[in-house]
Design a protein around this nucleic acid. Structure first.
Length: 554
RNA sequence: UGCCCGAUAGUAUAAUGGUAGUACGACGGUUUUUGGUGCCGUUUGUCUAGGUUCGAAUCCUGGUCGGGCAACCA
């Protein structure tokens, strides 16, 4: 980290706290609720929390915020841990808010004994009504004036399971006229006779977010508790509880959550996409989840770089998907193994090449690599090229194959198109070419020149592959302000399957998990699933930039 | 009509009272056995009205616009 970089507002706070001696070491935490899979928005938070601790020699706890047994599952715990590790971060301690249930209960007793909390028998409707509105103060329920002894007894009975769900709650006694609605006696505990993924049936009362998060931060001596903007109005509650409980003063800081074009980022909506089977699962490559992006071929580095570049601020934002794509291309360009795959094959015959001859050409695995490695590519009389790479009557700027024109076959020879065949509908069925042996790749011969270079595969020595071409899940840029239901804007083209593609044979020998660039096409990664007949499936991570496509649109 | 947060190119993000910069995008050029990559260049910005000051994106006041807050969710 030698480069001069300006600080974001949280880094400024930390540097000041370190300089002033307020803290010797910073402690952050990443506090996911295990009720869904992590998405790219969480990745921003993970990079922030873990990155800060890394940079300032602090530490970061992973704490599962599991105070709502009805929504939380162990499956989610495991996926969250795997995603954080995959992103390249290590937590100091693995913790659960449920580990603190006894401690939190004791905190609640402390509050009651101080006359700062009371058991309320009102229904949730009555409580909501009693809170008033933003412009009118709330009114106290008759239970607000219960004695400390009665509150203590009732709260113990709540824990002991004497009451049904919703019969009673514990509330803080703060200020029913506060302009901040959250200060109007917020709920601290509710009764839920539900089985918790870790504590089982040990508890039937569960703390609310407000009574769990800040206290957990305090127990762990978190110095900088970083969360998203929607918790700003909770901060006075956070501070009030810490003050009244006289515990370690953690502080909360808020930043704007990540929004991205053409996608949704709420766990509720993502869960719906999964349960309504609009996508295949949480790790569907179209999902903005970490696991989906991993399956799609995104790299941890590209996500970390993306998080760094988007910065941290307090203003609402909507980040261009193209920025994420830039970072994954940047990373993959340096690391992806090059292979040739013809997506839409059309036959090409080299008329002056021997019938049964197979010539093995050498192809660089990656022109950007410092240590060059090569693979063999079989070259034969009959080949396939991309249908779109041939035109009978091409426009001026078309650098590809056309009658009488010359192109280079990548890693091979320059060829000239002499003839072509068409069916009755005008579709090209075969192209006949002459090749020039002296133009062989690497020969250094420069007498012949070709403007374009095409990728190709042997017609006899290739392997069929399935290609899954993914695109944005939605058709609307800003899904937050899109009219109607978000499901109205699903992109019908978000997945296009190509069953006709043919790949060079080297692809069968490659190590699993390799990132590929299919030459002139895009970045791909092999999917975990194969076709029933064993045919490999490749997911498109992102296409290559295509200035020809842009040109043709003009 | 209460309280809170925010407002800098198309999108993000810097400038911490002293030359408005960076990245992505867009556009153009160049190199190239990937119409990829690399390299070079162009373009567009301080929400508004006052005030303080030699000097304001920055400080103050009013307004406008955007977001949030009245879950036994987090």
């Amino acid at each position: 980290m030698s480069e001069e970089k300006s600080l974001n507002f949280i880094e400024e706070i930390i540097e000041n706290d370190l300089k002033s001696g307020k803290y010797d070491q910073i402690v952050t935490r990443f506090p996911p609720e295990p009720n869904g899979y992590l998405h790219i928005g969480h990745a921003k938070s993970i990079c922030l929390n873990f990155g800060l601790a890394e940079h300032y020699n602090g530490r970061t706890n992973l704490r599962f915020d599991d105070t709502n047994p009805e929504k939380e599952e162990t499956e989610y715990v495991e996926s969250i841990k795997a995603d954080i590790k995959w992103l390249g971060f290590d937590w100091d301690q693995e913790l659960y808010t449920s580990d603190y249930f006894e401690q939190l209960y004791q905190f609640a007793l402390t509050l009651i004994k101080k006359g700062l909390a009371y058991v309320d028998d009102s229904t949730s409707e009555q409580i909501a009504a009693g809170k008033g509105t933003p412009t009118t103060p709330g009114v106290a329920s008759s239970y607000r004036s219960r004695s400390i002894e009665e509150n203590l007894q009732l709260f113990e009975q709540m824990r002991a399971g004497k009451f049904k769900d919703g019969e009673k709650v514990l509330r803080a006694k703060i200020d029913l006229a506060a302009p901040n609605m959250l200060l109007r006696d917020p709920l601290l505990y509710r009764i839920k006779h539900a089985t918790h993924h870790r504590t089982g049936d040990q508890w039937c009362i569960y703390p609310m977010y407000d009574f769990a998060h800040g206290q957990s931060d305090s127990i762990e001596h978190i110095t900088h508790s970083i969360c998203t903007l929607e918790f700003v109005p909770h901060r006075p509650v956070y501070d009030w509880l810490i003050e009244k409980l006289e515990i370690f003063p953690s502080h909360q800081y808020e930043f704007a959550r990540l929004n991205m074009t053409y996608t949704v980022m709420s766990k509720r909506k993502l869960l719906q996409l999964v349960s309504d089977k609009i996508v295949e699962g949480w790790d569907d490559p179209r999902m903005p989840t970490i696991s989906g992006m991993r399956r799609r071929g995104y790299t941890p580095k590209s996500i970390r770089e993306f998080s760094r570049q988007i910065g941290v601020a307090k203003r609402e934002n909507l980040i261009d998907l193209s920025l994420l794509e830039f970072f994954v291309r940047e990373d993959l360009n340096k690391t992806a193994t090059r292979r040739m795959v013809v997506f839409d094959p059309v036959k090409l015959v080299i008329t002056n090449f021997a019938e049964d001859q197979v010539e093995y050409l050498e192809g660089e695995d990656n022109p950007e690599a410092e240590q060059k490695t090569y693979r063999k590519i079989p070259f034969t009389k009959e080949l396939y090229i991309e249908r779109e790479d041939f035109m009978v009557d091409p426009p001026k700027k078309f650098f590809r194959l056309a009658p009488g024109k010359m192109v280079r076959l990548k890693y091979g020879y320059i060829i000239r198109c002499d003839q072509f065949k068409q069916d009755e509908n005008g579709n090209i069925t075969e192209i006949a070419c002459t090749y020039f042996p002296e133009s062989k790749s690497g020969s250094g011969d420069t007498t012949l020149k070709a403007k374009g270079t095409l990728h190709w595969v042997s017609a006899t020595k290739n392997t069929p592959v399935t290609l899954k071409l993914y695109d944005r899940l939605f058709t609307v840029e800003d899904m937050n302000s899109a009219e109607g239901e978000y499901k109205d804007h699903l992109n019908p083209q978000s997945l296009v399957i190509n069953n006709a593609a043919l790949a060079e044979p080297a692809i069968l020998e490659d190590a699993p998990g390799l990132s590929y660039q299919f030459l002139r096409k895009g970045y791909f990664i092999q999917d975990k699933e194969k076709e029933a007949d064993g045919k490999p499936v490749f997911n498109r991570t992102v296409g290559l930039k295509d200035s020809w496509a842009k040109e043709t649109k003009k």
